[in-house]
Each structure stands twice: as C-alpha cells, then as structure tokens.
Nucleic acid binder design. Sequence first.
RNA 1: GCGCGAUUAGCUCAGUUGGUAGAGCAACUCUUUUACACAGAGAAGGUCGCAGGUUCGAAUCCUGCAUCGCGCACCA
Length: 748
Amino acid sequence: MNQKFLKPYDPTATEDRIYKLWEESGFFNPDTLPERNKKGEPYSIVLPPPNVTGTLHMGHAAMLAIEDIMIRYKRMQGFRTLWLPGTDHAAIATQSKVEKELEKKEGKRRHDLGREEFLKRVDTFAKESHDTIVNQVRKMGASIDWSREAFTLDERRTVAVRTAFKTMYDLGLIYRGHRIVNWDPKGQTTISDDEIVYEERKAKLYTFKYSKDFPIYIATTRPETKVGDVAVAVHPDDVRYKKYVGQEFKLDFAGAKLTIKIVGDVAVDPAFGTGAVGVTPAHSGTDADIASRHGLPSVQVIDEFAKMTSGTGIVAGMKVAAAREAIVKWLEENSLLEKTEDVTQNIATAERTGGIVEPLPKLQWFIAVNKPFKLAHSVIPGIKSGQEVTLKEIMKKAVDSGAIKIIPERFDKTYFHWIDNLRDWCISRQIWYGHRIPVWYKEQEIFVGLEAPKGEGWKQDEDTLDTWFSSGLWTFSTLGWPEQTNDLKVFHPTNVLETGYDILFFWVARMILMTGCLLGDIPFKTVYLHGLVRDGKGRKMSKSLDNNIDPLDMIKKFGADATRLSLIIGTGPGNDAKLSEDKVKGYKNFSNKIWNIARFILSTAEGERHQGRTLTQIAPRSDLGVAKVNYDPAFKEWSETDAGYLKRLHELTVEVTMEMDEYKFYLVGEKLYHYVWHEFADLILEESKPIIAGTDHKASVSRIQFLLHALRTSVALLHPFMPFVTEEIWGEIGKKGRDLLIVENWPS
RNA sequence: GCGCGAUUAGCUCAGUUGGUAGAGCAACUCUUUUACACAGAGAAGGUCGCAGGUUCGAAUCCUGCAUCGCGCACCA
C-alpha cells in the first residue's frame, strides 16, 4: 500500500498533480478521447463566459461544479464530450471598472486618454483578469477543453458579430431609429430595459396647474419635466374634462413658453391623481406614445448630463434635482400648487453604475422583435423554412414546442411573460469597450458590412454593441460560425446550458433569439438554471457586508472536492443556496472518510492471499457493473450476506443513474454520501472486521472481494462530484497501467 | 396590479404518482493501544405556516388567508 494512505487525505498535495495528469491525458478534448468516446454520441456544453472584471465568486464555483458533474458523468458513460470555455468582455461592466481605477489612481477620465489609449488599458486589465479566472477554473477541477477557448471580443468572434449584424440588418431586423431610450447619465450611455433595476423610494406627488387661467389640475412627481409639456391627456370618456378636449392653451410656465393641447387618450387612468396627465413626449415612453397618437411635437428639456436645456425659463442650466425644487417654489409663489402628497415610487436606476435613468429621445440602433420576416431555413418545431415569423414568435416557439426544456419548469412562465412584455431591443451603447458597430457613414450614404468600405471619407459609427449581442451568439460563435466547421456540425445545438436564473432574460432568451434568427435552430436542448449562492444566514454575498466567501480560499482550506460537494448538496435547481464554511468543512471530513475506507480495504486486501496472489491483484479494475462481476472463478460464490450487499449496491447504482439523468445532483450527492459513510463504512466495514479476522477463509475472501468492488463502485459514482480524491484512490485500487478514472465506465 | 417561489427537527434541506414524517450539521451521553477523533456507538428532537374542503387516509390534491423572498408591469 502506498505510504501516503497512512496520513490524512491532503487535497493541496494532490489536486494540482491530478489536474495535470488529466490535462496531459488529452481527455478534456473530444478529439483525443479514448476510442469508445470518439465513437460515442456527442455531448456538449459551452461555459457561460465569466466577465473579465476580476475574479470568480461562489456563484461561478457552483456553475463550474454542476457543469463538470454533467460532463464527467457523460464522459464516463462513453459520450463524445465537449465542454468549451471562454470569457466575456462584458462591455459596460469592464469599462466602468477600469474607469473607476483610472479615476482613483491617476485622477483621469477616459476622455483624457482618448479612445485608443483607453482601450489599451482595458485590454491589459482584461488580460490579467482572464488569467486569474482561468487559474480559478482549473483549481475547481473543471474538465474543460482549453484548446477551444474563446473570448467574446477576439478575432473570430468579431467576424461572427459583424456577420450577425449584417445579416439581421439585411433582413430588416436591425434598424436605426430616433426613440425614447433609457439614458444613464452616470455611465453616459443608453442601456436596455433589462439593465434597469427598480428601486423603491419615497417621492412627492405634486398637484398643480400650469397657470391661473388653465382649467385642469395635473399631478406629477417630476415638476421639472413639465417645462417640456405639449399636452394634457384625459380619458376620452371622463365627464369632468370632456368639454376641454381639442382646446389649445398658450401659456407661460416658470418662464417657459408652452403650447398645451387637451387630448383624449385611453391610456389615461381617470382614477389616478386628478385623472389628467401632463404629456412630456421627450422624457417619458408612455407620453411619447400618446404624443405620436395625436401628432404632437416633442420638446427635449433635459440633456445627457441630466441638466435642463436652454429655453426652459427659470430652470435653464440647472441640474434636474435643483430644477425640481425651483419649479415647486415657483408654483407655491404663484399659488398654483394645490397639494403635495407622499408616495412611494419605483425609480429606474442603471444596473452597473447606479445612476438614475433618464428617458431621452435619441438616435440608436434597435432589434425589431415584432417585425415579420422570412426565416429562410428552420428546424425549429412549428416553424417551417421560408415561413414569415417575428423574433418574438421564434423565442416562444422554441420553448413551447418542447424543443427547449427549462429546468426547473416553473421558469417557463417567467420566460413567456417576459416575451409578452418585450419591446424592441436597443443594442447601441455610447461606450468604447466592445464591438464597434459595423456601420460606416459618408454624407447621406450608409454602409453595413464586415470591413470598412473602400474609398475616402467613410466614418465608422462611434457606438459599440450591447455586450449581450455577442454573448447571444455564444453557442455557435465558439464553434466557428459563420464558417461551417466540423465542430458546428457535431456539437450544435449544445445539450445543456447551465446558468443562473438571474440571466434568463439577459442571456438565455437572447441566445434563443439569435440562434433562431441566424441558424433557424435552437442553441441548446436543456436549460438548467441554478440559484444564487448566499451566505450562511441567507444574505447576498457583498463587499459592503464583507460576507464574501472566496472559492480559492475554501479550496485551499478544505480542497476542491469538498468545495464542490458543499455547493451541490442541499441545492435544487432554481433555488438559492446557503453556504457556510462549516458546510465545506463537513465535506472535507467526507473526503478523508473515503480516504480511510480505501486505506482499510487496501491494507486488508493486501494481507489476504489466495493462490499466492493478493486480492488486489486478482480483482480486475474495470469490473464495476454487478452484472459484469467476473472475479476469479474460485470466488464466484458470494456469501449470502455479500450477495445481498451486492444487490443493494446495484440498486443504488440504478437509482442514482436515473437521478443523474433527471439532473437531481443534490439527491445523488446526498445518497452517495449517505451510502458510503453510514452504510458502507459504519455497517459493512465494521461488520467485516471479525469476518476477516476469523477462520472461515471462504467468507473472508468473499467479503474482501465485495469491499474492493464496493470501493471501486463508490469511487466511480462519486467521481463527477469529487474528481480529485476519487482519481487519487483509483490509482491504487486496481491493475496498473489502465486508464484514468475520468474515462472509466460509469457503473451499471 | 399580474405572476412565481418558500414556509417540515435548533440550523440547512429532502420527501417522486396521497398510505403512520427523513438526511446532514449542531447540541446531548458514552467510547481513545480501533481504517479514520477530519472518528465510532447511543439516545433525543417535528400537532409538516394558519383555516377550511376532497378522501377510508393529506406534508403531498383543492380553496382562502398570513408571513418572507423574487420576477414583470405601472409608476402622471
């Protein structure tokens, strides 16, 4: 027996060595798998690319653990497995991180450096961040194919992004339009609807009228925008106001000259406030809709820096907050303010910068989700090639046809609900880091293509694309699209997309949209959603609470196996998980338990001889299936008890295999833990001691054979969960020179 | 406002199609020339959020309510 078994299991001394062994074996790469796998059915997962904004957190660790379990399981079953890694440039997130550092360390802003120099800084930061992340992924034991690694902003992905943009532009699905967008004054960029976080705040609702002669009171929480009003809308059936509809008033409001028309519109709720709405088309989406229905003009009164524009009377040039106070004061002084009420309202803030989102009319690029187009080629169930569809319909069909299955199922509803409310997706961003929009302008001409057009005087669009545009292509851009590569043929659609439920809309839905549109296919067959990893008290891990648990820390203290198991057990799909150091520690003890089981069995088996050979030499290593138990003929007869144990182990194997197929990893982990510790070790092993020490040679040999068999089976079943300690033990419990456990048969 | 989830032992969670409540951790008692004290043995611990209903039988199905959490929409 190897001397290392005499000491407690030491993850740090083991893990890096084992990982190297796996990498050198080539088994992470589907092209260099054993013959059995090469001939097997393909099974692929693309890694949700972590943002290159720093380091990995526990959520990433959970994601890696779950995906590695899926891949290792399928690899042992003989599938041709590919797990493809990569990182995401994460446009706004990364840029704002670098901007913050620049400001802090050098007191400079990005414009002080200029576009080119600033982008160099971001690249340097992204590179460092990338290296850290890759190291962390290895530490977790991820059996990932590094030879295919991708980055959302590398050359090949740039070709994919530009091809996608051009294709969708030619289909009429990408258009440029002047519309109300979500403007983040802090980040100085537009953001999509999904990048908004609503925060509940107390606000005041002011009820007032524009002037003494104006007949209707209106209510607002934003008096400063009222200098941009062009109308007052009332419900067309509202008897209080019916007589005014159609009238027009010219008036002076806090020094601003307004022309207010009274219009009837069904969007107005007669029961809210005074039942009359001041219409500000330039600074409210719903108001803009009302304005367009009545042919009203739009007057912008707030600029990109959240300051009042000129021509706004007494508030011109003021910041929005100051302007609000000024208007209220003016209303009071002129006895126009009827009442002030306290209300709570949801205020829109930008997810990344926390800035208060200002709706502004701007010229931006959009993806039309409701526009019918001809989908040339389709294998999506329910959509025929050449059929007219909208992107929304594609997204819906992909899931409600059953082609894509979401786990847990209840997220179907959330997904459909989101689609129903979906509006055109604003994809242009006024930041520098990211894919620059592949559009060039020259006077009135516009050119959309993969490269700049020939000839003088063309200027490329200044904006970049929403980061989710490139991530939306991830399942196929990583496999070589738009080239028709072999990888694309073999591994797409991918089998499973495993990611957090928090990016179901951001990412999962966008991938379905992009893949449907560009390939006429689905990007994956199953979506497995995991929850958030919270601290032991159920709080979100955050810097301000200082309750972050660092995965590397846990790995260092307790080993990657223990860290992985602690993230799996007690965690169902779609549910948030609580994690404490004690939990990880518990599974460290389990690693050691298995280690000692192996030690006991090895030393016992080596001591027991049959026909001049030790039992470890007799029992072949690959005999994992009970049906295949094929030991030395002399020992074919199991004792009655051992036959019973064999049966029980076989039943467990069948049960656990079924649950693996149902993605119930938390159950499998727990069951194996329980079997190994409290059945195999506590009952069977304890009971074995007198049998082995006894005089009945036959019974003793039968039992030792069983112990070896059960150890091998347990270690194999546990391998996807705890790859390191199981591989290490595997190296000692069978014939030398055979393959690693990573490609051993899954027990049956 | 619409929708989703949770509520089971001190804590974290299981509980498949309804058949007398389970696991881990913690706590308690005992055990140390024992494969492992990163351990073993043992005992203890729950009117399954509340109220109704269906049923021979409900943690499980139905209705209503409560508390907590989440998503979407509205947000004049």
